[in-house]
Structure formats: structure tokens, C-alpha cells
Design a protein around this nucleic acid. Structure first.
Lengths: 193, 193
DNA sequence: TATAATAACTTTACATTGTCAAGATTGGAG
DNA sequence: CTCCAATCTTGACAATGTAAAGTTATTATA
């Protein structure tokens, strides 16, 4: 009857609507029915594209992660060498989540514990930003002819990673910290090295 | 009629039941009604002790944080000096959440934990583990007669904190980097210094 | 091109959940 | 003992996730 029976691009529209809702009202306001309503489809329409709510959430996560990856790649491009690329990535990582605190809480929260039990052979390759950091780090070692064994590499990589991720976590989870000037803090090179 | 109309200690029982449910089935399985049922009271009974679900969650958070604080204080006690106390705290912090990954996701899911990072500020709202670290850090500076201005102190404290918190985050968050041997990693002194 | 198959969507239905309101029960202060 | 406030129950309601069955449009196929 109506030519709008089929949305045409509902899957993407649902993801975008989901992101909008998270940004406007936080993750706890994200419901399948609201997302569906935002796309002007019935409340069960999403089930044609996602198995359940968790699958929609995973898709949104992927979309947000892609955004982050773009910024990280920009940071690498505008760095003189791979050492400053690492620092630049760290800053970008923190500032990205500082700009979108809801994204952090949303991304790093396991929705369904049982959903992850199947794929227990997860590797670090699962999280693209970490893969990018690892690549940049290895390039840095090579560029500066630094010899380290696997273990030492792992530890150092982990330290760099924890530093950036930890800062982002603190910045986003601690609520508003008016007394602390994050922008200024990120100006210096000291913090993430 | 029945002598069990009044539970007697329902508030504490609800908190304990909540913790049990989180440990057994994850946070997403935590519902007011299930917690009430676990205590064998009606579904609306919790409202005599908590304004809403969020208040129960906050109470559970406080309880878990107290557990963590006990372990952190133990770590300080068994350290030779305040420098090794800082390292010990970091290890304890990570291993605590490594032992109880659900606690991490649960504690840092919402915004209410506020860490005021200004060194000279002290509020009741402070996140207790951070306050303890700050105290230990200042003692360390004094003990070793290290002169640093406020800004330098803030940055260093933040780095230590981010390191520990970031490691815990990575260790607990789903599938980010599960391929590391965390126990062995925490054996060395290198990681958190 | 006609028709069958399939994907996309709607409607209906139901269980779970958070929360409120009104009432029942009980311990304790006076 | 009496009354009050705290505690708990019952019943209700709206929001939500999700399953089932039916409807419509698109696509494939003959």
C-alpha cells in the first residue's frame, strides 16, 4: 500500500538513531522501541535486522569505534615520526572520549556476559585501536633500532595502552571534574610518554 | 501475624543479595524484584529502604568499594616504605578487579564515582581508593624529600592512577586484551612504577 | 511477464521490570 | 495501653524485550 512500508535503509537508520539517543539522553535511555519509533517503524521492526537488542548495541559499538579509528589515523598522519605518533594517538584517544563521555561508558561495558562465552579465543586483534597502536609501536621500535624481546614489548605496549585508556576512563567515569584542566594537561608531552 | 513480617535487617540483606546476583549472573541480571525475592520479601519492600533502584545500586557500590579499601590498606601495611606501598596498591587494585571482573564493570558503569584530582582538595565525595593513593603519594614525596609543584604532583599522581586503573579496565573489559598472563605480569615490579 | 519465494515490516500478545498508591502489620515511645 | 511511624504487602500501571503469526513489497526464477 504505502510506499514507505519498506524503509530502504533501516539497519543504518537504527544505528544512527541509537547513537543520537545515546548522545542526547545517555545509554540507559536506549531502548529498542524508542529507536524504532525514531525511525518511524513498528517496535518489532528492528528484529528483521538484529537478533536482539544486544546485536543492535554491538552494531552501534562498531560504528562508534570506526569514528574513533578515523581520528586515530589522522593523528598518525600528522605526526613527524612513529614515536610522536604514539603520543599523538594517546592524546587523541583521551580527547575523543573526553568529547563524548557517553561513548566510553557505552563502548566498554559488556552487555551480555553469556553472549561472549562462545568466542573464548578472542585476541587483541578484536579491538582496532589497539591493533593500530601495536603497529605504530612496532614501527617505532624498528625505526629506532630498539631491541626488545616479546615479553618486554608486551609490557611496554601494555603500559602505553593502560595510560591512555586509564586516563580516558578517569576523564569519563569520574563525572565532571571542574578543577582539572584536561585540555591543558593534554598539551604537554609528559603525560603519555 | 507471622513473626517474619519485619525482616529485621532488610537493608543489608538486599545489598548482600544484590552482590550475590551480580557475581553469579552479572549486573544486567540485577533487578529490584529479584533482589527482593532473594530476601523473601515482596517486590515493593525495597522501597522502604531505597528511593529507587539507583539508590540500591549506589549502596552496593559503597559496599564493594569498602571491600576494595580493606585490601588496599592491607597492601600498604605490608609494604616496607611508601614507594613500595604505591606499587603494592597498584598491584592490589588490578588483582582485586581481576578476581572480580564484574565488580569493575559494575562500579564504573555510571558517573557517580567522583575523583577530585586536585591535590589540595579534599571532599567527602572523593573516590576512597584514590584518596588513599594520594595520601600515600604525598607521604612518599615527603619521605624522600622530593620537591614538586602542585602541577607536577597532579600529573604524576594521575599517571600512577591511570596506570593502575587502565590496567584494571583492560583486564576486566570484554575481550580487549585477554591474551596476556596477568598473574605473571603483576609479579614484576616494572609494570606499575 | 507471471508467479513463487523471501525479506521487510506490522500487529498482537505476554513476561519482566520499575514505580506508585493504598492498605496491613508491627515495634516502640509516651 | 494507645497511637505513631517505620516496615512490609497487595494491586496496579506503563515501559520494555521478545516471540508468533500475519501482511506487504522486493527479488528471483521459470
Amino acid at each position: 500500500m504505502s510506499d514507505t512500508y519498506h524503509h530502504g535503509n533501516l539497519r543504518e537508520a537504527l544505528i544512527e538513531a541509537g547513537i543520537r539517543i545515546i548522545n542526547e539522553s545517555g545509554e540507559n535511555a536506549l531502548s529498542l522501541r524508542k529507536v524504532a519509533a525514531a525511525c518511524e517503524v513498528s517496535h518489532a521492526a528492528p528484529y528483521a535486522h538484529f537478533k536482539d537488542k544486544n546485536e543492535l548495541i554491538e552494531a552501534i559499538k562498531m560504528s562508534v569505534t570506526e569514528q574513533l579509528m578515523c581520528e586515530l589515523e589522522d593523528a598518525i598522519k600528522s605526526a613527524a615520526n612513529s614515536e610522536s605518533a604514539i603520543v599523538g594517538m594517546g592524546k587523541k584517544y583521551v580527547s575523543f572520549f573526553l568529547k563524548n563521555p557517553d561513548y566510553f561508558k557505552f563502548l566498554f561495558r559488556r552487555q551480555n556476559i553469556t553472549a561472549h562465552l562462545k568466542t573464548d579465543e578472542k585476541t587483541d586483534d578484536d579491538y582496532p585501536p589497539f591493533v593500530l597502536l601495536k603497529k605504530t609501536y612496532l614501527k617505532y621500535l624498528k625505526e629506532n633500532r630498539i631491541e626488545k624481546n616479546k615479553k618486554e614489548q608486551e609490557v611496554e605496549l601494555l603500559k602505553i595502552w593502560a595510560s591512555a585508556h586509564g586516563l580516558a576512563a578517569i576523564a569519563c567515569m569520574s563525572g565532571v571534574i571542574p578543577s582539572f584542566d584536561w585540555d591543558e594537561m593534554l598539551e604537554g608531552d609528559d603525560l603519555l610518554r
